[in-house]
Write a protein that binds this DNA or RNA. Sequence first.
DNA 1: CATGAATGAGTGTTCATTCAT
DNA 2: CATGAATGAACACTCATTCAT
Lengths: 193, 193, 193, 193
Amino acid sequence: MTSRKLEKYDSILNAALKVIAENGFHGAQVSKIAKEAGVADGTIYLYFKNKEDILISLFQQRLGALVDQFHASIQDTHSAADALRTVCHIHYSELERNIHLAYVTQIELRQSNIELRKAIGASVKPYIKLIEHILERGVQSGEFRSNLDVKLTRSLIFGAMDEVVTSWLISGQKYSLSAQVDGTLDFFLKGLN
Amino acid sequence: MTSRKLEKYDSILNAALKVIAENGFHGAQVSKIAKEAGVADGTIYLYFKNKEDILISLFQQRLGALVDQFHASIQDTHSAADALRTVCHIHYSELERNIHLAYVTQIELRQSNIELRKAIGASVKPYIKLIEHILERGVQSGEFRSNLDVKLTRSLIFGAMDEVVTSWLISGQKYSLSAQVDGTLDFFLKGLN
Amino acid sequence: MTSRKLEKYDSILNAALKVIAENGFHGAQVSKIAKEAGVADGTIYLYFKNKEDILISLFQQRLGALVDQFHASIQDTHSAADALRTVCHIHYSELERNIHLAYVTQIELRQSNIELRKAIGASVKPYIKLIEHILERGVQSGEFRSNLDVKLTRSLIFGAMDEVVTSWLISGQKYSLSAQVDGTLDFFLKGLN
Amino acid sequence: MTSRKLEKYDSILNAALKVIAENGFHGAQVSKIAKEAGVADGTIYLYFKNKEDILISLFQQRLGALVDQFHASIQDTHSAADALRTVCHIHYSELERNIHLAYVTQIELRQSNIELRKAIGASVKPYIKLIEHILERGVQSGEFRSNLDVKLTRSLIFGAMDEVVTSWLISGQKYSLSAQVDGTLDFFLKGLN
DNA sequence: CATGAATGAGTGTTCATTCAT
DNA sequence: CATGAATGAACACTCATTCAT
């Protein structure tokens, strides 16, 4: 893709994000996205196969970027606990920093049809795998207990963080999300005791 | 409501659950629910304000019953940890036992519009409050650490269990969900260490 | 179908015929047909599967009625030549009498897509078969020459009459179509000599 | 037009014929024709006013060539019957030889809109005139009966041959079209007797 | 002359809800 | 109370044509 094409491709994805954030999933018509992007309706279809393709691309691109950031950041970590803290920090702070993205991924895109949700699931999988690797690393290094059920725990950890973000959004962002990293890590590392 | 009315009211909710489970949220037309319930389309509107009202009522009734069961069950518990284990056990085993309900609440109803999701949120709230109370009880009894962020932790715990159920559903129920109670409680009580 | 339903079914077909005749095949939107029939757009779909189904039904019903009329009329004929004359007479006079139907079947419906044309072809087949039967009858009775290629001749006869109707329509109906029966039969029976 | 221009003009018409034959009338987009012709979409519009103009030109050119061939061939004929046989022979054999052209003219181009069909009619007119002249020649020479309705008969003859070709195409060309010349002429000359 | 990216008008179909019976 | 026929708003996508380069 030339830089000209790439530019328009990006502007359509940005427009989609904004329109969904402002109008909700069901209020995000293709014509509205086109208008926001400053192109004609038909132009959308020069860059995306159909409406679903816009949404999948949006999710993949943004979540893919996050996962890349995760991978890069945990390179420098000295321990599995440290890595987990880094992941949680990025997870919370990036979504706090980008409220549109948070709203769209946590709330709006989840009300999509089954096909789109499958594609979204595929985008989330690498992230859950990343958490799993951190857990394995911790078990091998002796940081985490050896009887840890890694498959189960990766779900517990992902679900816990995911719900904290959603809960923060629904509350109307009345408090700092990134300030929850310490409390979250305390829970992950020490449990309730 | 007379018992005659109540009977029909219930049969419509049952029909809704079955139709959504079999056809998905977007394949659950009012006419299909009416047919399954053995009534005319218009009759639905003598018992429910609109389609959303059916879904909200369905969620409230079924989730309300669960929360009642939770409340009853933790009466007999000797400790907060015990109470939490009981809650988790009911949460997992009830949804495992009622796969239709699990599928509809975890997967299908989440693709509904924002209004319905707000109502669903309201139904979930008492459950989250229940978890919060257990946490407070544990802190007060000295079972749980005194610096526990109760508001944050209730989200972490709910989100963790919720994701475990969803993950089990998506996997195709290839393993026992209720067998995950111990591993889940280990994580809640001991964390990763 | 109840008579009430049948009434509306017919009024939609009549509306379709009128709208196509007045606006052409490509100007015959479902909404226009609905308006002409005095029903809502959605009502159309209570009686027909889709737009194509309207057009196929229209063709089948009207052409089927014609073929029925042919069959009934040739019962009383004393010779194959007489039968052929009767068929030609009905063919010309019915389309002359119903200019809308003529226009729609000869001009408009022929610009439809392949699926519709197949269905139309199926409707025309019984008519061509009828012509074939008359030819066979004539050969057997010795009226027509014994070396007649029946399969070929049925096409020649149908095509000849069909073109006469089309030609008359395109000319703007400046002359009487039914007055062409004698000349047509002369040609069929005597050829050019 | 320079020969360079003419070359490209022809290649676009050839491309149009091929694309319509392979994809049908409704599957013959301008962009597909351009691609087949090896030019850019916009280039088409340097040679043709619009899409309709391509199709009309295609029909005129190909049919015009046929009519020229007819005129040339009947010069050498000794009788009207001979001329008619020659016309029928060329009609059938040329379309049998060029199945693409047959398919496009008999099936695909007939599903076009009214404007295009008028233009096509104009292209067919000289052919029908030619048949008319042959009939007049036959009447004057005493070959054909003097009470022949020439205007009517030209339609009968054209329609008959046209239907034979279409019928042969729809059958899947399971038999020889040019072998139908004798049977056709027998019918034209002797009628059914 | 040639390109091809961009345009934007146009339409069949679904389904929650109503209301005359 | 119950029915179910009728309603009508809402929207993704295609493709002939243009025009800046």
